[in-house]
Design a protein around this nucleic acid. Sequence first.
DNA 1: TAACGATTTAAACTGTTGTTTGAAATGAAT
DNA 2: ATTCATTTCAAACAACAGTTTAAATCGTTA
Lengths: 223, 223
Amino acid sequence: MPASRTAAEGTREKLLDAAEQAFADHGFEGATVREICLRAGANIAAVNYYFGDKLNLYTEVLRRFARKLDVEAALSDRTAPPEVVLRAIIRMRLRGMFASQNPDLPFRVMMHEWAHPTPAMDRVLNETLRPLYDRFRDIVGAIIGLPRDHETTRLCVHSIIGQAIHYVQGRPILAKLWPELTMTPEQVDRIADHIADFSLAYLHTFKSARRRLPRDARERKRP
Amino acid sequence: MPASRTAAEGTREKLLDAAEQAFADHGFEGATVREICLRAGANIAAVNYYFGDKLNLYTEVLRRFARKLDVEAALSDRTAPPEVVLRAIIRMRLRGMFASQNPDLPFRVMMHEWAHPTPAMDRVLNETLRPLYDRFRDIVGAIIGLPRDHETTRLCVHSIIGQAIHYVQGRPILAKLWPELTMTPEQVDRIADHIADFSLAYLHTFKSARRRLPRDARERKRP
DNA sequence: TAACGATTTAAACTGTTGTTTGAAATGAAT
DNA sequence: ATTCATTTCAAACAACAGTTTAAATCGTTA
């Protein structure tokens, strides 16, 4: 089924490919071991043979996500102004999630995890999601001139994350509420730019008018 | 289990109460009829006796949501300026979803539906969610001076919805990424105000500076 | 070729799900 | 008190999940 790999590769890798696809589509509980093995061209017992159980296979898929994040974090330019970095990150994320050729399956898996966490999450959360989260807080904090732990910084970060995730999480109902929306590459880029514009409009109120800070940051400490 | 109702009420109503709670907690597939019947103090066969099957019971819970939305829509003040209405709606929604006393269970059910739609959704979507969605588009459209069908209007609406939903959908992981965040009534109001401020900052760029429209609305038709 | 470890296979096992059954209990009308 | 429809109950049902088993197969090495 995975076109990028040959039949000569190991069953273990084929299982991981199929599992990644299945978990991205249906989440941990929704995906079945039988479906995974079928798509991998392997026997039902293969997942037990190579990974012990379903949760271990799932954890391994999550670890791929970790590795993918690492290289991506290393690629980002740390010298560019934070507004540019922010826009680039938003665009990269959305492109990855909606790319028709090679969709960002690990990230879609993480989206399911976001709504319905599994025990496997605890193992990889701290070494994958938190660094990304912290770095994102630094970028936003640099724009608004507040520390990463400030409540306003965190609220802004979650406002941006919420906008982006929404297009993946709510895709099924979005398709019914807004059927004309087709996720072409151009459309995805427009959405990404919109999220960046929408967010920067608020973030820039901190920089341009220090005297008139937005009300939710005027006299507040972090919780 | 439901403290608000007496033991004298019908089994059917107790089932609906328990089902609402269970579906709000675990979604349609995650909730089990055994758990529902146990919490309702009824026999396993009760759901079949009163509703036929699980999906019918679920549909009935969704219908409650519809009725609740109707009265809420009737309550909102149509004469107030759209910015005020927008802020009020955001606050009302978040308060309802995180109210400790009587949480907005039907809305939390709908949140699960948002990520994992069921066949029951089609029946009630058009007569429940779409009117709310359309009305929300009108409010945002009134602020930015664009029709409800304009792409920018829709993108803004989804930016706001995405922010709000995020705090419900991503609650589990949010608790790990931001453990200090406790959803007290005051905190929920602060979040609601932040979402309103964050969003209005962008929406007001349309009103204040017609000559310098944001780039994503300058020369674009709806898709 | 023979032997042996690694892999694959078909089948069964255990547990849980939604659903159904038929008898027992209930309660109001005759 | 007797009837009769309504409601409740314990038990079993079929379907499906993840997991396990033991035999069959494969591939490499002696």
